[in-house]
Design a protein around this nucleic acid. Structure first.
Lengths: 191, 191, 191, 191
DNA sequence: AATGAATGAGCATTCATTCAT
DNA sequence: AATGAATGAATGCTCATTCAT
């Protein structure tokens, strides 16, 4: 599936674009100029527009594999972990790993800039349900405070995502640690 | 201190600019075009540059009073609250109130965009020590986990700030609630 | 003559292109993007360039039949009409009918845009002599002012063509009526 | 009136732009790239946008004087000419003189391209009523065919304008002569 | 001191034309 | 022969910043 374009050169270019975009996104953020990405890929600008009509399409394509992997990890963790809360912790860890290595991605995810709707849509469609299920399960198991049952996967993810904004730039900011605190804050106080 | 410019008209302009910037920042975010701010203030663009050479200077000036108030609230809360943790909670509340009413401010605070260094510097110089003291006191009092003693005021503030990114735009995102969860996560598990 | 390409599929494509171009020309004008025409025809863009190296070639080919019909109508009308002037009137009518139903064609005909030379050439080669003969005959018959004998078929045709510019778009502009006035202006004042 | 910008350099630039635009319009038509006009004027592109936010604004400004002169000539000619038809003839002559010296202007006037609405509006607002009055007067005087009473100033002007399309490029095309034929066609056949 | 006109780099986007497949 | 992917010049437009007035 997803065989991509038929022609060999087109496939090669598409891959070159994905690689180039990933590189440039890391260096300059996901809002880097189209020209830069084209140059990095060694293709003309038109080629980007052919393969990825909007910037969001490109971003989605660049991160699709990782988003999919993250989405699929949710049920697996729920099945294999000791408790639902442990599964949630691990899943969030994975999500954070993903975000902090993507310069500026967290920022764009929060952006209300129209034109990123496809991006939002993809991330949310794939991940919010997974996150929501893990959260619900952890509420059911009594590990997470009942009053947070209505927080929802979306808000939790946005919170986690926000905590990761800017994390790639500044080594003094430890997004993982803060996320861990946030997740700890979900817990029902013992005793 | 800070007597401002000598001439009366210059002082008047400075105030007009601060008011105008505050208005425009709310409406269009802190990255609004310089021209818009000048127009709102009824002055020329050159005047902005004279008074506030960089955008960060303007932002700092616009929010100086509120930042100062926030800074001064820290010791007061520590003195008046039942416990250091309660003081920390209240102080964070106040900080969040400040951020979520400033469209885009939280975003700029995280931005690694050079040119906002003065802004970062001011916020951090004023608020980080206060936040750090509250956190330390709450660690000392045993309310906050000892292993978070080295988290530091800066990281905590950045975390809180990040959670507020985009909160002004989207009513479905409740930054205050997520911050509350984060602060709850600082607590030593009871029992 | 004009047997077209040897291979059957090439001939089929050529016809598909002519049909597609006619359709797209009506919808979007004769300067429509090549890609659109190719898409309408269901062929690749390269195929257009193979069959019709320049846009003008394509336009000429699309309208060849009608231009030819118009050219052939001239002598016929001259033979069958009551007077040469009547023949001229009818022939111009036919020419106008042709132009006003071709969105943008009249405009391109006037365009000095190099690249349309082939188009100009074809139209003029075929039609100017016909128009000229009709005009001459009407001068000879005394119906048209003698001082217009040297106007020539070319100028008359360009005038008529110009009067048709934009006629397809705007229903409030009645090209036929204005052309009729122009042709009436050729007449020798009675009495 | 119309003193233009206050500052001397701004006035100088505005005039430079009008001159440059007139020059470039003649050389490359009224759709010439903004960059070219700016270069010809020796100013930055932003300066064009400041003075003339849309292309139509620039075109109108370039030709305003001449359009106004043309509009004002109508009543004067009606008063001074021997007959209304003679006034119409002379007025049309003046209008044609204007158009044929403006490369591409006649074309744009016919263009249905949105973005030229301001241009259309100005030309039509100023000239159509004048043309209409002259036409009406010539109908009243019995010089022009009564059945053309409802032709209207707009259609007549569009016809004349169309006859001028491309006249600047091609010396073999005599727009003035064809317009004269058209106007002759308005006449009531003598006898 | 204030003004706001001018600058021009920067960016997105389109589309005719070429040429590898 | 056909395809359609790739190219990249061309163009419009914005806005931070400078500087003549």
């Amino acid at each position: 599936m997803r065989p991509g374009p038929r022609r060999k050169d087109a496939r090669r270019n598409q891959q070159a674009l994905l690689d180039a975009a990933a590189t440039v996104f890391v260096a300059s953020g996901v809002e880097a100029p189209v020209r830069d990405i084209a140059a990095e890929a060694g293709v003309g600008m038109g080629t980007i527009y052919r393969h990825f009509p909007t910037r969001a399409d490109l971003i989605v394509a660049v991160y699709r594999h990782q988003v999919d992997a993250c989405a699929e990890a949710g049920p697996a963790l729920l099945a294999s972990s000791r408790t639902p809360y442990a599964a949630l912790e691990q899943w969030i860890d994975q999500f954070v790993d993903f975000l902090v290595t993507k310069h500026g991605l967290a920022g764009v995810l929060q952006s209300d800039n129209s034109g990123f709707e496809a991006l939002h849509a993809y991330f949310l469609d794939r991940l919010v349900p997974v996150c929501g299920e893990l959260l619900d399960a952890a509420v059911e198991s009594g590990e997470v405070r009942r009053d947070l049952a209505d927080l929802g996967g979306l808000q939790l993810m946005r919170g986690v995502g926000n905590l990761c904004v800017g994390a790639s730039n500044d080594p003094s900011y430890d997004a993982r640690r803060l996320v861990a605190v946030l997740i700890a804050g979900l817990r029902r106080p013992a005793g």
